[in-house]
Amino acid sequence: MKSKIAIAFENCKKENRPALITYTVAGDNTKNNSLKILNKISKHADILECGFPHNTPIADGGQIQGSSHRALKNGIKLKDVFQIVKKFKKINPSKPLILMGYFNLIYQSGESNFLNNCKKSGVDGLIIVDLPYPENKNFAKKCKKKGITFIQLLSPTTSKDRMRKIIKDSHEMLYYISMLSTTGGKLKVSPKKILKNYNKIKRINPKKNLVIGFGITDKTISSLKSANGLVVGSMLCKIITNSLKMRQNPVTKLDKVVYNLKRKII
């Protein structure tokens, strides 16, 4: 059976456009609001990434750190994250949702226990920032057994030889980090160069759905639309921060922003 993630990519290909992938943090700024945000933006986004926050992240920039901090301050726990996913999936059963976070939370909850909870709540995929290849091989296999897509990351520093190995062992989706940066950095590489790298990876295995993330905003998204998918994260976290500052409703604000992002890639 095809995964919901694979189907989402197929549908986008039919429409000749990249998949729009959003990243927001579970519990930002409240449990309720983060669920409302997911429900709203899922009308425009094709795949939703949902962060489970960690208080010592080593690869996140200021915006996502801010979102994680707000969520943790509100007392978000893993069980709440799964509740949010479950409630979301009840309303949007076919919309793929990917959890993203750091390995220590999985380690503490136990790999199998964590994956069971993923399965029960309807999680479709996982991105674990600090569990690289080949250390992640066993865990990725466990995911596969549960029908959960483990998304391998590739970066501009990944050698070609290493890329081949990672891609060979990967599931249907891969994530290319556009540049050397934490999340939310300013795009310091030209879209042309990013796409050149992107195409190099695509040539290794054209069948894999390859998405680009890091540094993508409403300003840069249209220049990268030949990719299979594009991830926007920090920009959305920043909008939540700003709307809270201006006492605006982050849910309606985010709805508009994601709608606009979508328009730029059609």
Partner: peptide, 12 residues
């Protein structure tokens, strides 16, 4: 111990 690091740091 080990190396629980983002992909970007693997090569360096």
């Amino acid at each position: 111990g080990g190396n629980f690091i983002p992909e970007t740091l693997k090569k360096p």
